[in-house]
Simulated assay, not measured.
Amino acid sequence: MSRPAFRVSAALAAAAAAALALTACSGSGSGSSSSDTHFVSGTGTSATVPVKDRGAAISLSGQDLDGKPLSLADYRGKVVVLNVWGSWCGPCRAEAGDLESVFKATQAEGVQFVGINTRDLQVPAAKAFVSAHGLTYPNLYDPDGELLLKFPKGSLNPQAIPSTLILDREGRVAVRALQPLTSEQLTKLLQPVLAEKS
C-alpha cells in the first residue's frame, strides 16, 4: 500500500473509532413513547412503564468483577436499580457518587443496586473505577456488551451509556433513564416504584 493510501486508510479508521466512541458514551437517548414497550415519556430522557403494561421479569446473570456468579433473580422482592457504565465514560464518572449515595440512603427500604460494567476489556480498569468512586454494590462484568443484548427489545439502548433501569419487586422494568442522573433525579424516579404495593 502506498504512503498516501495508507494515510487515508488510517484517517478513516480513526474517524470511525471516534464516531463509535461518541455513540457508545452517550449522555442522551430517546425518551419517546413506543407502542411495543409501553414506555411513557417523562421529563428529559427518562420514561416510565405503567404497572399494567410491564412485561416479564428481567432474567440476567453472569459474573461479577471478581469472577463470582451474580444473578438478578437473587434480588426478587426488592426494587432493583440497574446501572450500565464503563470506566471510559465521562458521564458515568460524573454520576457514580450520586448513585452510591442513593444506594446507601435507600438500602434499608429494600432497594438493591446492581451495576453492569460494559466494554471495559480489562477488569483492573473496572475495579479501579469502583474503588475510586467508593461503590459498594455488586457489578456484573460485560466486556463485550453481550448482557446488554439480552434485554427485551426497546427496554434498553445498548449505545446509551450510562443508562439506568429501575426494576419493580417482581423484576419488571418500571423506569428507564438513558442519561446520567443526579441523586435528586434518581430519588424522584425511584420513590413511586418503592411506594408500589408488593
Rank of each mutant, 00 (worst) to 15 (best):
A15M: 14
S183M: 05
P124F: 15
E196F: 02
G62E: 08
Q122N: 13
A132Y: 03
K52R: 15
G134S: 02
L140R: 03
K197M: 13
E109Q: 15
Q112K: 03
L99I: 09
L156M: 12
L60A: 00
Y75Q: 08
L148N: 05
Q179T: 11
G62P: 03
L121C: 00
A73T: 06
P162E: 03
R93C: 10
S2K: 09
L70T: 06
H133L: 13
A11W: 14
Q179D: 04
E100Q: 15
V80Y: 06
Y141S: 08
C92W: 02
T43W: 03
D168A: 14
A105R: 08
R176Y: 05
A128V: 00
F113I: 11
G110P: 10
A125N: 11
P91L: 02
G77K: 05
L165N: 07
T136S: 15
G42W: 02
F113R: 11
G27K: 03
W85G: 05
D168K: 13
S2F: 00
A14G: 12
T48N: 08
N83P: 01
V123Y: 11
L194V: 11
A57L: 12
A19T: 14
P91M: 08
V114H: 04
P4R: 03
G77M: 10
D142F: 06
T45E: 13
V193R: 10
V102N: 09
K104S: 14
R93I: 12
K150R: 15
V8W: 13
A57Q: 11
S32M: 12
G145E: 10
V175G: 13
M1K: 11
R169A: 08
L156V: 07
P91D: 09
V130P: 00
K78Q: 15
R54W: 02
G31W: 09
L167W: 07
V8R: 13
S87D: 04
E146G: 12
L181V: 06
S35F: 05
V123G: 11
G55N: 07
L22K: 14
P143T: 05
D74E: 15
T37R: 02
S163H: 03
S33V: 13
N117Q: 07
F129V: 05
D144F: 06
G27Y: 05
Y141H: 09
L167I: 02
A56C: 02
T182E: 06
T118R: 14
S28P: 00
R172E: 10
N117D: 13
P50I: 09
D168W: 06
S41N: 06
Q122G: 00
A47Q: 10
T164D: 07
P162K: 12
P124A: 12
R54Q: 11
C89A: 07
G86A: 15
P69Q: 08
L149A: 12
S34I: 05
L99Q: 06
G90I: 12
A128G: 01
A160C: 05
L60S: 03
I161F: 01
L121H: 14
A11N: 11
G62Q: 05
G42H: 05
F6R: 15
S33R: 15
A108P: 01
R54Y: 03
G110Y: 03
A11E: 12
S101W: 07
S71W: 02
R7G: 01
A19V: 13
G145R: 07
L99F: 14
D98V: 06
Y141I: 01
P50G: 05
I116C: 01
